[in-house]
């Protein structure tokens, strides 16, 4: 880990607003899964969202690229408000990269094709240029030699790094991570986290749902704790871990850090 990563304060956060969520509510049927969410993400922020399972943290970030639909309130991403207008949704989605717990690579395409698909068909990039960009990001995640293989031939950690590279090929301004290391064997978690840390150091705006508290301490400038569909506490990492305010946060931290 580079030295800057140890001190998240050194990394640049601008005043420009990347994501603005105002009074947002969401229900699954009659179940009120997100309750009055208000949050502002500035460009360059690295936010870690944690909380017990079922607290709505995944749902929250999936609302940001409209994989889930919110019912009331407002979500504005990069100046574009998410409504049922398909044009706006596609615009936001091509600006916001997402990495999933289960990688969701396309198994019928090679690694290179996985990476070039969206640039070619969404951005209309010429194939050759898209392949150059793809190779650049594959080198960045340190697996350029796997370009011609299929996802099924790679290890979990490699697949997740490919998934990160696939998102980066669209040159997103914001990256969402939905428990990116939860499906990985312990020895593979580090290679994925290293890639994410590197990304954070380059100033990417990141929202990351994770239980990797080491990652939160290393790169996050803000940790958000959610419980029962609400944001219960948020603070900069040192304060959050050393001096949690709410009882619920204290209990959660004692459970995940206690072993």
């Amino acid at each position: 880990m580079a030295e800057t990563a140890r001190d998240p304060g050194k990394m640049q956060v601008s005043d420009e607003v990347a994501i603005q969520i105002t009074a947002m509510n969401k229900w699954y049927g009659t179940f009120h899964v997100l309750r009055d969410i208000n949050m502002t993400v500035r460009r360059g922020e690295r936010i870690v969202i944690c909380g017990p399972s079922g607290s709505g943290k995944s749902t929250l970030i999936r609302c940001i690229n409209r994989l889930e639909e919110h019912q009331t309130g407002q979500i504005v991403v990069d100046g574009t408000e998410l409504t049922s207008d398909l044009k706006n949704i596609d615009k936001v989605r091509s600006e916001v990269g997402m990495v999933f717990q289960h990688f969701n690579l396309f198994p019928h395409l090679t690694i290179l094709e996985n990476l070039t698909l969206a640039p070619i068909w969404v951005r209309k990039t010429p194939k050759k240029e898209a392949e150059e960009v793809a190779m650049h990001y594959l080198r960045k995640v340190k697996i350029p030699e796997q370009a011609a293989k299929y996802p099924g031939q790679l290890s979990g950690g490699q697949q997740q790094r490919v998934a990160i590279a696939r998102s980066l090929c669209m040159k997103p301004r914001i990256m969402l991570f939905d428990e990116p290391t939860s499906a990985l064997d312990p020895e593979m978690i580090k290679e994925v986290l290293d890639t994410m840390i590197e990304l954070a150091q380059e100033g990417m705006t990141m929202l990351c749902v994770t239980h990797e508290m080491g990652f939160a301490q290393a790169v996050a400038n803000r940790v958000i704790f959610m419980d029962q569909g609400q944001i219960v506490e948020q603070n900069e990492p040192r304060e959050f871990f050393n001096n949690p305010k709410s009882e619920r946060t204290k209990l959660f931290l004692s459970q995940i850090l206690g072993h």
Binding site: M98, A118, W121
Partner: peptide, 27 residues
């Protein structure tokens, strides 16, 4: 097909017809 395939296609900004043609139907 797992739901994740649709979600990944959506998250990359592919529209309905591109997602069906390039991701869903081939599989």
């Amino acid at each position: 097909l797992p739901r994740g395939q649709y979600e990944a296609a959506d998250a990359l900004g592919l529209d309905y017809w591109s997602a069906e043609r390039l991701i869903i139907l081939p599989q």
